[in-house]
């Protein structure tokens, strides 16, 4: 197997909260290889968010080494980490975090505006449209976030995360604000992307969502307590079919009562 995208060695993160030292992460070592699809699970306060922020170069570990694509992130300053986030990482947040009153297309173009290499306006547009195409929203490129449903907004956010062709896609509870059917749809997008070779790490606290991934890490008290492949992996397209079937059945049964 090729060298891992992410290599964490004995990562520790300690916050000073008043006079109290909080050990959020207490020595996590982890390899993530190309093409993996990992779910990080854990209760709130388990350290999974800190681990995620560390992976996302938003936070720096107190000690330990973090090699992203062979580069030690712990050595980098604020600006270099910003460039790393722009070039090698894609973020999907629970709250979507799209710019309000800004079209889907312009939201997706945003990371390219902050790229080091100048991208021409037409190239920017072409790549943003391609990314929207991948998440199936090309025909809604000129819609504002307020005109899109939650699932569609999250797909725009995924397109934005993809547009700079990152080495690693990080999703922090991407389905946290979505209903179950939309969640499955979004997981379907992730599965398709993963099949195309994109490495994905996501945080979730829903076990059924984690079942769509390939590998599950359980974090507790700042340590990885379980690390195992997913048994009985769910396939989003099949689950969606089941859901639609169930819906249709429900409608059929309710039809004689004239509900619809």
């Amino acid at each position: 197997m090729s060298s891992p995208v992410v290599q964490l060695r004995d990562i520790r993160r300690t916050y000073i909260s008043g006079e109290l030292e909080v050990h959020a992460v207490r020595g996590i070592s982890l390899d993530i290889h190309v093409g993996e699809f990992i779910a990080i699970m854990g209760a709130s306060g388990s350290g999974k968010s800190t681990l995620m922020n560390t992976l996302g170069c938003l936070d720096r570990p107190t000690s330990g080494t973090y090699l992203l694509d062979g580069v030690n992130v712990a050595d980098l300053d604020r600006e270099a980490r910003a460039d790393l986030r722009n070039q090698k990482l894609g973020f999907v947040f629970q709250g979507f975090n799209l710019l309000p009153r800004t079209s889907a297309l312009e939201n997706v173009e945003l990371p390219m505006l902050y790229a080091h290499r100048r991208v021409s306006a037409s190239e920017m547009r072409r790549r943003a449209m391609a990314a929207l195409e991948i998440v199936g929203l090309a025909q809604r490129a000129d819609h504002l976030p307020s005109q899109l449903s939650g699932g569609q907004q999250q797909r725009v956010a995924i397109a934005r995360a993809l547009v700079n062709e990152p080495r690693l896609l990080l999703a922090d509870e991407p389905t946290g604000n979505l209903d179950s059917k939309t969640s499955v749809e979004v997981m379907g997008v992730f599965q398709r992307l993963n099949e195309q070779g994109i490495t994905i790490v996501m945080v979730t606290h829903e076990l059924d969502i984690a079942q769509y991934c390939k590998r599950i890490l359980v974090v507790r008290d700042g340590l990885v307590v379980r690390d195992e492949p997913v048994a009985g992996r769910l396939i989003a397209s099949e689950e969606l079919k089941k859901l639609l079937g169930a819906e249709a059945a429900a409608q059929l049964t309710s039809a004689p009562f004239g509900a619809k």
């Binding site: 996302g56 938003l58 910003a82």
Partner: peptide, 10 residues
């Protein structure tokens, strides 16, 4: 915050 996360410099 969004801009910083996406890779904007200060």
């Amino acid at each position: 915050g969004i801009r910083l996360a996406i890779g904007a410099h200060d």
